[in-house]
């Protein structure tokens, strides 16, 4: 297994548990969507997998090695993280992506580092923007830069916190398509938190619903049911199939 999350319990001081006995496994080339309403602990889970938050109990293993026993630098060489909020200073795309080589870098930037950045820019179709300052970019372009940055970390696991939250439809499709292609090509394991169920079901291999800090349901996209959505979000939906895709449509009926 590429990523194994086991019995995670996270609590913020005194206010009960945010995540309770949460676990899943993920193989190489697989993408998992973490779904659930606002404030259910999706981002907390990602931070926990990345070692930024120490859980009360439980373990996170990447290729069999425990994340909580690793130094920050070692974690950064195994897990790439694309945060929801990214600040852009006056820095070129090339330099912003080069920052992702930091966990591997010695005192000087090596030729190898530069070549890897060049390759990542090529893979994400950012070559023509290499010298553009990132503070003059659109949301979609900046998101690609952040993915490229995580990619040059050469991680085994990619974590993305709502990668499409501030993008228009075209960019949403493009970014998720890019993530899917990159994950398959590099045989990574990817975990993303998402709000848009239809986008998630279209691009991921598996989904996982969190309710009240616990795994409520999980499965392949075609295994989603109207009952799951009603229980997690309190919204009545119909599950339709269109062109081989599963589509979730709210039907306007009152929730029971």
């Amino acid at each position: 297994m590429m990523l194994e999350v086991k019995d995670i319990r996270v609590g913020y001081n005194g206010s009960g548990l945010v995540l309770e006995d949460l676990g899943f496994t993920l193989g190489a080339g697989e993408i998992l969507a973490i779904l659930g309403p606002n404030g259910v602990g999706k981002t907390t889970l990602l931070r926990c997998i990345n070692g930024m938050i120490q859980p009360k109990t439980g373990s996170v293993m990447v290729e069999g090695a425990d994340v909580f026993g690793m130094s920050a630098g070692r974690i950064a060489r195994r897990l790439g993280y694309v945060a929801q909020r990214n600040d852009a200073g006056r820095m070129t795309t090339f330099d912003a992506v080069l920052l992702g080589r930091k966990p591997h870098m010695g005192w000087k930037v090596s030729h190898d580092d530069l070549h890897k950045v060049g390759a990542a820019l090529h893979q994400l179709g950012l070559e023509h923007l290499a010298l553009r300052d990132i503070d003059r970019m659109s949301g979609g372009e900046l998101q690609k830069v952040c993915i490229a940055r995580a990619l040059v970390q050469e991680p085994r696991v990619l974590l993305l916190d709502e990668p499409t939250s501030s993008l228009d439809l075209k960019n949403q499709l493009e970014i998720l398509g890019t993530i899917r292609r990159v994950v398959k090509e590099h045989q990574l394991a990817a975990v993303m938190t998402m709000h848009d169920l239809n986008l998630a079901l279209r691009f991921v291999d598996r989904f996982l619903f969190i309710r009240k800090g616990k795994v409520f349901a999980s499965g392949r996209p075609d295994e989603i049911s109207a009952e799951m959505v009603a229980a997690v979000y309190g919204v009545q939906v119909d599950i339709l199939r269109h062109d081989g895709q599963v589509v979730v449509v709210p039907n306007g009926r009152e929730s029971a």
Binding site: A72, R74, A83, R85, N86, R149
Partner: peptide, 20 residues
């Protein structure tokens, strides 16, 4: 210098790049 560049990109991104 690289730590400061990482912090410029956001605290969370910096942490994920191994910056304390």
């Amino acid at each position: 210098r690289w730590n400061y560049n990482a912090i410029d990109a956001g605290d969370e991104t910096a942490r994920s790049l191994g910056v304390r």
